[in-house]
Amino acid sequence: MDWLHAVLLAFVQGLTEFLPVSSSAHLILIPVFTDWPDQGLAFDVALHLGSLGAVVAYFRHELVAMTCSWSRSVRGKGTDDDARLAWWVIVATLPVCLMGLMFQDVIETQLRSPLILAFGLIVFGLLLGYADWRYRGQRSEVSMNWKDALWIGLAQALALIPGTSRSGITMTAALLLGFNREAAARFSFLLSIPVIVLAGGMQIYQLTVSAVAVDWSAMAVGVISSAISAYLCIHFFLVFIRRIGMQPFVIYRLLLGAALIWLYG
């Protein structure tokens, strides 16, 4: 893999991992529109590690507070807002874990066509636009309860359908529950951490048992490029939605979905 290929893939993954536009759709489409071969499992692992490093670095203070408070709550020493938020992240992660284990083979073999991507981009893009326009509220993540977390977690399981966007569907669910834009985005970003850890862990296991040769230089480029683009994406996205909202991403999803239907319909 040459450096241009590695940097472009990492840049796209780092941006789209947290934008509500579907990272899986973009990574699937890059080989479709170019002559580049599939990047392989090892490079996918590198991209996930870069995104994970970015979100952990950005929310490092919140994560330390959540971890300490959660640990105290497990030991029966009281529960505060940080502990509850940590518990809600765990609750919201359970549905996607169960659905991923049950339908992994179907997802990887039968749900990766351009038309399914178009369906996910358009349908869930329209739902995001509706939620941002009609149901945007004033709740912060501190007001979340276990029912909210479960609903957001069930919505996240839909992101197993390519084109849906994990960040997009979780933000949509949070907006429909009355959370403000920033709260919806922050909880979605925090929720990405266990998902990326689990997905990356599974990929690392598959990589170790497959004995595939690893291009370490491409891996390093992928980790660094993905981390930088993901970190910048998180920062500027939170500023952007506070001022403008989700509608530009909705328009982008509709245009991309329409282009896929035109090309492959």
Rank of each mutant, 00 (worst) to 15 (best):
L207T: 08
L160Q: 10
G40V: 11
I28A: 10
A185W: 10
P20M: 00
V45I: 13
M102G: 15
L19T: 02
R139S: 01
A218Q: 12
F236Y: 15
A183D: 07
I244H: 00
L52P: 12
A173T: 07
P114G: 07
R186Y: 02
G201S: 09
I196G: 08
Y264W: 15
H235Y: 12
I196N: 06
S210Q: 11
V223D: 00
T67A: 15
R72C: 13
S113E: 14
V32Y: 14
G120S: 04
M246V: 09
V74K: 02
M171W: 09
G78M: 00
P194T: 05
D38C: 04
L176C: 14
C68L: 15
R136G: 06
I28T: 07
K147Y: 14
T67N: 05
L254W: 10
L111M: 15
G76D: 10
I169N: 07
I241C: 02
L49E: 11
A213L: 12
W88M: 08
I261Q: 05
V239C: 00
I224H: 03
S167F: 14
W70S: 05
H235I: 00
G245V: 08
A155I: 09
L177W: 10
A46C: 10
L8K: 02
A25C: 03
Y205C: 07
Y205D: 11
S73C: 01
S143G: 11
H26C: 10
N180P: 11
V64G: 09
V7F: 10
R186N: 00
T93A: 07
R186I: 05
I116C: 09
V45N: 09
D215S: 13
V55H: 02
M144A: 05
A185F: 11
G200Q: 02
G200K: 00
N180I: 13
F240H: 02
L191P: 09
A131Q: 06
A199G: 14
A199L: 02
Y58H: 12
L8D: 04
P114E: 13
Y130P: 03
A46R: 03
V214M: 06
A86G: 08
H61W: 13
G153K: 01
T16H: 05
A57Y: 15
Q39W: 12
F179W: 15
V55D: 01
S165T: 08
L254M: 13
W146A: 15
N145P: 03
L101C: 09
G257A: 11
V223S: 01
L94E: 08
I90Q: 03
S225I: 05
L127E: 04
G120F: 07
C97Y: 09
G200L: 01
V197R: 00
R72T: 12
R242K: 11
L8N: 08
C233K: 05
V56M: 12
G53K: 02
T170F: 12
R166H: 12
A157Y: 11
R243F: 06
L255W: 04
Q156A: 04
L15K: 01
L150H: 08
V239G: 06
P31L: 04
V12K: 01
L128M: 06
W70Q: 01
L160E: 13
N145C: 05
S226P: 04
L260T: 12
Q156K: 02
V91E: 03
A6V: 14
L115W: 11
S225T: 15
V96M: 08
A10M: 08
